[in-house]
Amino acid sequence: MAENKEEDVNLGANKYRETQPLKTAAQTDKDYKEPPPAPLFEPGELSSWSFYRAGIAEFMATFLFLYITILTVMGLKRSDSLCSSVGIQGVAWAFGGMIFALVYCTAGISGGHINPAVTIWSVLGKKLSLTRAVFYIVMQCLGAICGAGVVKGFMVGPYERLNGGANVVNPGYTKGDGLGAEIIGTFVLVYTVFSATDAKRSARDSHVPILAPLPIGFAVFLVHLATIPTTGTGTNPARSLGAATIYNQDQAWDDHWIFWVGPFIGQALAAVYHQIIIRAIPFKSSRS
């Protein structure tokens, strides 16, 4: 009896190679169900508690995101602060780590967007109704403003001296440089979101373990490492709006359009690329 069990274990462990070519049994023997498309308008959501719960989750997540990350930026820029030793790497980890934690906490409630660019993609991909998307974006922006406001309340003088963590095109770079950095940075982030959450990819490439918040947070970390010297890294219009609103100086608003236009172009390009690379590959389910 024990020998038979051991044979069963060996058979299960060696049934498929670690890497499988497309359309082999390891991939086609998996069920694949495309979620139904969300309607463009769904007024009935307005009477649902889950609708408001999701909005509250987006508000709190963006609030906490701005609170932790802007405080870290303030610490980096203060020469008399112990946090100044964290460097750009520490700021990047703060942004990436918070996204990892917050997406993990809110994914089951609201989808864990925390970014209007991700929300707009969800509408274009028919994963979210326009009704819910508008509510999400409003709550994200309000959460960001409140998060930055709390930081200012704690720091007051230093907040004004240190530009409030607002995104601007840094000296030595042109507006074109800043726009390009925001487009490419958002492309990397949103493409990672697509790949980590796509049901078809998960079914086809099921031999690759995926914990969605981890690659998303790591993408945010890497993008910040690359683009902090250029724009301070926006890639999230709510984050940029929250910091600019509370700081409210001309320099914060001069280039503010870049931090909306760049992310929306970047997410559109990521959507097209994802459609070509992931969605266009045929997938055959074992059950029809």
Rank of each mutant, 00 (worst) to 15 (best):
I99V: 15
P37L: 07
S84I: 00
A117K: 00
A238F: 08
I265Y: 08
K175N: 14
T231I: 01
W253T: 00
K77F: 10
S286W: 09
Q140E: 15
A243Q: 04
R239E: 07
G55Q: 03
F51C: 09
Y247H: 14
A166M: 08
F187K: 06
S240F: 03
D198H: 13
G12R: 14
P213M: 09
T62V: 15
G96V: 03
A38D: 06
D255L: 06
K152V: 00
Y104Q: 14
V73K: 04
V188Q: 01
W257R: 00
F187R: 06
I276K: 12
A238E: 09
I120M: 12
M98T: 15
I145E: 09
V150F: 05
R201D: 04
G266V: 07
V223A: 06
F283G: 05
K77P: 02
F218D: 00
G108K: 14
S240Y: 05
V118P: 01
T235R: 00
V190P: 00
P43Q: 08
A243L: 02
A280G: 00
S81A: 12
L102N: 08
Y191K: 04
M98G: 14
L225C: 14
A166C: 13
R287A: 13
V156C: 09
E160G: 10
N167S: 15
A54F: 01
